[in-house]
Design a protein around this nucleic acid. Sequence first.
DNA 1: GTCATCATGTAAGCCGTTACATGATTGC
DNA 2: GCAATCATGTAACGGCTTACATGATGAC
Lengths: 196, 196
Amino acid sequence: MIELAILGVLRESELHGYELKKRLREVMGPLSSVSFGSLYPALAKLEASGLVKAVDATTSTPMSVVPMTGALAGESAAFRAARRLATRGPRNKKVYGITEHGEARMAELISEPSDDERSFPLKLAFCRWCEPQVRLSLLRRRRQTLEDRLTERRRSLGARGERLDRYVRSLMEHDTESTELDIAWLDRLIEEETSA
Amino acid sequence: MIELAILGVLRESELHGYELKKRLREVMGPLSSVSFGSLYPALAKLEASGLVKAVDATTSTPMSVVPMTGALAGESAAFRAARRLATRGPRNKKVYGITEHGEARMAELISEPSDDERSFPLKLAFCRWCEPQVRLSLLRRRRQTLEDRLTERRRSLGARGERLDRYVRSLMEHDTESTELDIAWLDRLIEEETSA
DNA sequence: GTCATCATGTAAGCCGTTACATGATTGC
DNA sequence: GCAATCATGTAACGGCTTACATGATGAC
């Protein structure tokens, strides 16, 4: 889970742990944002496996050398990171970048059949990097999962739906509605994917 | 999490661990169904705290005494459990029931402010047992949580929405849509709650 | 008598958390 | 110089999972 999230964010730009955490919160939502206690060990593990590497930021450029244009609004996150890095020196920061091995691992993670509520959004968020057919099968796999759940739900609801508690029934009916919306959304994505 | 689920199911009928697991899967959905490895220790802990107790099923009624009507389809789960218990004897089974202390604990758990994706459905599923005002504040609290997330989402989407990856944007838009559906559903529940 | 199912547990491990410790840099 | 923030980590713990061990009961 956290592995794919880190790789995906690092693929966009090289970052150090602290900024990585901020970007992760943006991607994964304010909920389920990873904590430092899991982020740093995860990074260390990824580095040990060669999926990410610490990039050398040996430019000891003092601040005066960096031209301050005043047009800071347009800066990319990566550029800001680079500037701050140059300003502060690399001694106390570890800036990570994804390796080729890491990119291959990403493709592998996205292809994995597991399809739960947590992993799917993450996979979709980074699926631009993978091949169209992998992306398409991801969408179809997810659709099938939801479809299965829906028929299962309908079966158990039909069996003992009448004598169900009011709140439980409302919960189930809403879940069904919600899942149908999900499927319709996936259908749109699949349609766009196949037409292109 | 698992604590509330167990208490809630036991409140409907006295059960032993194995059947409890089956009922839990029905309530919590096929996903996130607890495993034995977590169920039994959880039950033991609940018993130690006095929230559930092992009910004595000392009725050594032999099977022949139980009349077999043939109309088995209409049996309740509780009755089936009782019959099977009488058939097999209590030696190898531990049938649990909720205590008064456990009922109080349930009310406490439902009142707790934590409101995440997992705990809310569980709370709602068992909220019939708690007082109307507690139930209402549960619904309102959840609604507020979703509303907050929605405004947060809109804020971050407005800031950098244009240059967002296609799939990430679709993900966010769908999440927004989905959350709006949730809120509308909660509004219906709240309306029903206040009108009665 | 044997196989599937029912039934209860324990052990090891994964994945993540909170809380704590440490120190550099910046702004005032 | 001092506080706030940036930055990196460690330690202890929690909750849940899979895999394993054990044995009773029922169907045939």
